[in-house]
Design a binder for these strands. Structure first.
Length: 158
DNA sequence: GCCAACGTTGGC
DNA sequence: GCCAACGTTGGC
């Protein structure tokens, strides 16, 4: 199975890339996703070894702040079954967990973030989902071409 | 803080 | 199954 690429959004005041860095082994489970389209990606498509852009949404400015690796493929998000969690779902059970998550490990915090503005201005990224108006999906596919273009932007800043 | 875009809910 | 109302997301 070829390696695939993704973009995960998080609000920095909720879970920032620094928070990920502070986790043991710089690894965290990407829990709390409660959207079916994103759930399907987490459950079926996102596999160990895939690469992920860590994106800060609702930030000033918003943008890509780091690179992660998926270290565990989709498995049930048991936090949905915990009434004291941040995103409980009373209909989720061990037999029918409904919601899924993956584990991600931090590879790199970018010395300089790539703001959304830059992505929008970069040729070849016009079709990138995060650049589209009203793209709310919190877990998004990234094509290999888009990944390479963004990696070039990152290299250029170093 | 505003508001456009989107997803979900629920009455019918 | 339609669709209006509502809640949420997230850029600005």
């Amino acid at each position: 199975m070829a390696k695939r690429y993704w973009l995960f959004k998080s609000e920095p005041n909720c879970f920032s890339i620094e928070d990920l860095q502070n986790e043991p082994h710089q690894t965290a489970c990407w829990d709390g996703v409660r959207n079916y389209q994103a759930r399907n990606l987490l459950r079926d498509e996102i596999k160990k070894g895939d690469r992920v852009f860590f994106y800060h949404s609702n930030a000033k400015p918003p943008g890509i702040v780091g690179i992660c690796e998926v270290v565990r493929s989709g498995y049930p998000d048991y936090t949905a079954q915990d009434p004291t969690s941040d995103h409980p779902d009373p209909t989720a059970t061990p037999q029918n967990p409904i919601w899924y998550m993956v584990d991600v490990k931090l590879k790199e915090i970018l010395p300089e973030m790539i703001p959304l503005n830059t992505l929008k201005e970069t040729p070849g990224l016009e079709e990138m989902m995060v650049c589209q108006r009203g793209a709310r999906l919190s877990v998004q596919p990234v094509t290999p071409e888009q990944w390479a273009i963004v990696m070039n932007l990152i290299k250029r800043k170093k």
